[in-house]
């Protein structure tokens, strides 16, 4: 942290522990976004192996058939499902949908924008990601 501007920095931005489940969702959204971007780049590299012919393609594909490969793909499933479901919630919120109505606030000032609809959306995204990952693991390791 530099003292000139006293910015909290990436460490503060990425710290999910202080501001409830909404900040956790924010953090997971960034993390899964970066993870999917990395997967996208890796996927392009992977599919480019087709240029090495059938043998080269099969050689590379064998990497995904290892335990590490299965765990990596399970993580991709988790990131993809969470990012999609939470993304729908965030997009609706960004349009002002489901963020409550302006009203005179009463103490203790629970923010209407952090309402149960959004909390349900966040927990649903986490739950669906977990279910999809477990299903993926069952398919990959159940062979």
């Amino acid at each position: 942290m530099t003292h000139d501007e006293h910015k909290e920095g990436i460490g503060g931005m990425a710290n999910p522990t202080r501001y409830g489940i909404e900040r956790v969702a924010y953090w997971l959204m960034r993390l899964s976004g970066l993870g999917l971007l990395a997967y996208f780049v890796a996927h392009i590299y992977e599919t480019s192996n087709i240029l090495r012919g059938q043998v080269g393609w099969n050689e590379f594909l064998e990497l995904t058939q290892t335990t590490e490969g299965h765990i990596f793909l399970a993580l991709v499933i988790a990131m993809c499902v969470f990012h999609t479901v939470n993304g729908v919630r965030v997009m609706l919120g960004h349009g002002g949908v489901g963020v409550g109505k302006p009203a005179r606030p009463d103490y203790p000032y629970d923010p209407a924008s952090q309402n149960y609809r959004h909390k349900i959306g966040i927990y649903s995204a986490i739950l669906l990601a977990a279910i999809a990952t477990m299903y993926g693991l069952a398919v990959m390791f159940g062979e």
Binding site: R18, Y19, E22, R23, Y26, M29, H94, P111, S113, Q114
Partner: peptide, 11 residues
């Protein structure tokens, strides 16, 4: 990005 932390700390 609608993290909502601003609303949680507003006194």
């Amino acid at each position: 990005h609608f993290a909502g932390s601003c609303s949680q700390v507003c006194p």
